[in-house]
Design a protein around this nucleic acid. Structure first.
Lengths: 147, 147
DNA sequence: ATTAATCGATTACAAGTGTAAACGTATTGG
DNA sequence: CCAATACGTTTACACTTGTAATCGATTAAT
C-alpha cells in the first residue's frame, strides 16, 4: 500500500470514471457521448469533470496528437472498496453486520453471486468473534449502554 | 411509502443525527458535547448542522421552555437503507453481488451477525436468478459486451 | 486556403458543505 | 436585580460540486 491518501471522487466524477473503466482507453468524445445520453450533460460539463479527475490524479491523460487518450489511474474495484469504507466509517462497527444483511436482502443476485457470498461467509464463520468491538464515541451509539 | 422524496444528509449532519438516534431525545447541549469531543467542533458548528437538519425536516424540534428537545424524524436504519441505495445506484446491478461480497470479506462480524447473514443468504438462494440484468447505459459497463 | 468543427483550458456562477463568529433574547447563579 | 451563561438565529466565508459558456489553438472538410 502506498503512502498516497485516498482521493475522493464525487458522484458525477464517478460517471466519467465508469466510462473509462468500461472502455479501458477513452477519448473525451467517448465520455461526452455516453454522458450526453445518460445524464443529458452538455459536452462542456463532461469536460469539466474530466479536467477535475485529471487534476486529482484519478484519470491519466496520454497525449495523442493534439488530444488525449484517457485511462483510469485506479481500478473500479479499489475505488468501490474505498467508497464502501467511507460508508462504513459512518456507522458503528457493531452495526456493520446488520447493515450488510440489509444490503444483501435488498439485492438481486445470481446463483454465482450467492455462491461467492457463501464462500466469503464460510470464511467469516471461522473468524467471527463473540462480540464486535464498538468504535463509537460515547453518545453516538448505545453499545456501551445496553447490557 | 409516502410520496415524500428522500432528503439527503451530509456526513457532518449524520454525526448530529447519530447522537439523536442514540439518545432518543437530545438537547443541543447533548449534541454539542459529543461532537466537541469527537470532532473538535465549536458549539456554533454543531448548531449550524442542527439548524440545517431541522430545516430539512430530519430533526424534530419540540419546544421546551425557551429551548428545544430534538428527536429524529427518521430511523437510523431507514437512513442507512437510503444511503446504501444511493451507493448501489452508482454501480452496475450485476456488480452488486461482488461488491457485497467484498464488504462482507472486509467486515468484522460476530457469530450472531454471521447467522443473520446466513439466513438472508439462504433466502436469497431461493430467489437467485441465472443472470442479473444489467441496468447500465451502453458505455458504462461491459455486461453487454462480454459473452 | 478558408471555414467549420473539435479539443482542452479558462472562466463563471449558483447551490451545497464545513466551519464558525456574532447577536439578541432568555435564564440562572449570586 | 444584575451579571454571566446558554440558546437559537443570523450572517460570513472559503471550498466543493454541478452545470455550462467561452476562448484559443488545431484539425478536418471543402
Amino acid at each position: 500500500m502506498t503512502v498516497e491518501e485516498k482521493v475522493e471522487m464525487t458522484i458525477s466524477e464517478r460517471e466519467v470514471m465508469r466510462v473509462v473503466w468500461t472502455l479501458g482507453n477513452a477519448t473525451s468524445k467517448d465520455i461526452v457521448d455516453v454522458l450526453e445520453r445518460k445524464r443529458d450533460w452538455k459536452p462542456a460539463t463532461a469536460k469539466t469533470f474530466i479536467g477535475r479527475l485529471v487534476k486529482k490524479g484519478l484519470l491519466l491523460a496520454e497525449p495523442h496528437g493534439n488530444k488525449y487518450i484517457y485511462s483510469a489511474a485506479i481500478s473500479e474495484e479499489d475505488s468501490l472498496k474505498t467508497a464502501a469504507d467511507r460508508f462504513f466509517e459512518q456507522i458503528c462497527h457493531k452495526q456493520a453486520g446488520k447493515t450488510i444483511a440489509d444490503m444483501l436482502a435488498g439485492a438481486t443476485l445470481s446463483h454465482q453471486d450467492v455462491e461467492l457470498i457463501q464462500q466469503v461467509l464460510d470464511d467469516q464463520k471461522k473468524r467471527a468473534v463473540d462480540e464486535v468491538a464498538c468504535n463509537c464515541v460515547p453518545g453516538q451509539c448505545n453499545c456501551s449502554t445496553q447490557r
